[in-house]
Simulated assay, not measured.
Amino acid sequence: MGRNDEQSGSRKGALRENQAETVREPREDSDRLDELIGHTLRERRTALSLTLSELSESSGVSNAMLSRIETGQVSPSLSTLVRITRVLGLSLSELFLDYESPEGGALHVEAGQGLEVVRTGTSRGHTYHLLSYERGPKQSFEAFLVSMDDESEVFPRFKHPGVEFLYMIRGEMQYRHGQNLYHVKPGDALTFDGTVMHGPETLLRIPIRFISIIEYASGEEAE
């Protein structure tokens, strides 16, 4: 084979590689992988304070191709990734660390948007806002923001399955659990057995705000 034929073959090979990197499949797992690779490479390059031009010069991958890779627009070939990761000091395995991790789906309740719920015996000036709960037919926990603004209110006693954790945010109160009274101030926390009668006894300083988290043991039902 002559020199011109070799050069022509090299150009065709490079062209085929470039085409392989720019052809997109329908959006599916491969696209998520491309986006993940691009994000990881961009974060590493930024952490090293490298510009695209500097990375291009060191890796031999064009600026335009690097930009498309970082934005997840192409599926880079293995040889291209090797050249880039070598400059960035990354191993190929590091590019795929998070690929199999669960997609996630946190329950986000914005400030003031918790669902207001009614509990037996509560009245005006005593509100519960549901902040978090476990999706599904059975609840393993519930979290509430409790607000109390009426110091003359007579408070009910509660009794429920599970363990309750209370964290005081604002105000002061006496809180009863069974035969014991606790003076609870901002920053204080109480943890107690929910099957024992409990509830606010006296509001010492209003307004009062506290977080209440109830954890139910397996098989117990939230009331």
Rank of each mutant, 00 (worst) to 15 (best):
R209A: 02
P186N: 05
L115E: 09
S56D: 02
A106L: 12
R45E: 00
P200S: 06
V87C: 09
L15Q: 13
E28V: 00
E6K: 02
F96K: 05
M65F: 13
Q73M: 09
G219M: 10
I213G: 09
F192R: 01
G199Q: 06
R11M: 09
F141Y: 09
Q19L: 15
K159S: 15
M197C: 06
L66S: 05
G187F: 02
E142W: 08
V23N: 15
G104A: 09
L204I: 13
M173G: 04
V163R: 03
T122C: 07
E110I: 12
G114Q: 01
G112L: 08
D188S: 12
S59P: 12
E103F: 14
A222W: 04
G60L: 08
E221L: 07
V23H: 15
G219H: 13
Y167Q: 13
H177G: 00
E221V: 07
E153W: 11
V184M: 13
G9F: 15
I214D: 00
L41M: 04
F155P: 08
K12W: 10
G171E: 10
H108L: 14
L90A: 06
E35K: 12
P102S: 04
S91H: 10
L115W: 00
T71R: 11
Q19Y: 14
F96M: 11
L52I: 11
L181P: 04
L55F: 00
F165H: 15
G171T: 01
L88E: 04
S123A: 13
L55T: 08
T71I: 07
R11Q: 11
G136Q: 00
A20N: 13
A64P: 14
